[in-house]
Amino acid sequence: MPVKIGGLKRLRTPTTFVVGKSTGSSIGELTELTNLQGKLCILNLQNVLDAMDAFQANLKEKKDLKELELEWGDKDAHDSTKERDVLDMLQPPINLVKLTLKFYGGITFPKWFVDSASSNIQWL
């Protein structure tokens, strides 16, 4: 039986997390990974079923993350409201230095994104 990434609670440096469609890895599996550090790429964010699943990932509390890449698929039709809600729930930790968004289809950005007082992002 394969091990789900959420079961690897001591994992520190994953490079890529791929959100599965109806089956596979749920973004909520990142909840238990409190020791993440360095760079994390989260791919296929269009597969997040509900923005609250993204909230459960609790990226804001992963204080040792320095780089975060968030990518939505470029092939599927974009749901701008859902993508904006998912991005809102994926608020990164205040110590983040580099943030990359790919294929984001929202028409606005969440408050945390535009509030310079809530981050140390030096590269976007």
Rank of each mutant, 00 (worst) to 15 (best):
G7C: 12
T31V: 09
F109L: 14
N95A: 11
T31A: 14
L40C: 04
W112P: 04
G105M: 03
G20V: 09
T81V: 15
K63A: 12
G24T: 10
Q122C: 03
N44K: 05
F103T: 06
A51M: 07
E69G: 05
G106R: 04
G6Y: 07
E71G: 02
E67R: 06
I94N: 04
E83W: 03
D53C: 07
S25G: 10
E67D: 11
S22I: 10
Q37T: 04
L65C: 00
P110R: 10
N35A: 08
K39E: 07
P92I: 03
I107H: 14
A57K: 00
L33A: 01
I94F: 06
T13Y: 15
K21E: 14
K98Q: 09
D64C: 10
L99Q: 02
F55N: 08
T100C: 12
L11V: 05
T15P: 04
K9N: 09
E83I: 00
W112R: 02
C41M: 12
R84E: 15
L30N: 01
T23F: 13
G24I: 09
P14F: 05
G20E: 07
S119Y: 09
R84P: 05
K62Y: 00
T13L: 10
P14I: 07
T100K: 10
F109N: 05
V3T: 12
P92Q: 03
T100Q: 06
L99H: 02
F17G: 04
K21D: 15
A77N: 12
R84A: 15
A57I: 00
K102S: 08
S116D: 12
L11W: 07
L43S: 09
M89L: 11
T34M: 06
Q46S: 06
Q56E: 13
R10V: 11
K102D: 04
L96S: 03
V18D: 12
K111Y: 15
V86M: 01
G20Q: 06
D53V: 05
H78D: 08
P93F: 03
N47Q: 08
L124R: 09
L87N: 05
L49I: 14
L43D: 07
L36H: 02
L49G: 10
K62M: 01
A77Y: 15
F113K: 00
W72S: 00
V114P: 01
K111W: 14
A57F: 04
I121S: 00
T16R: 14
S22W: 13
G105Y: 08
H78Y: 11
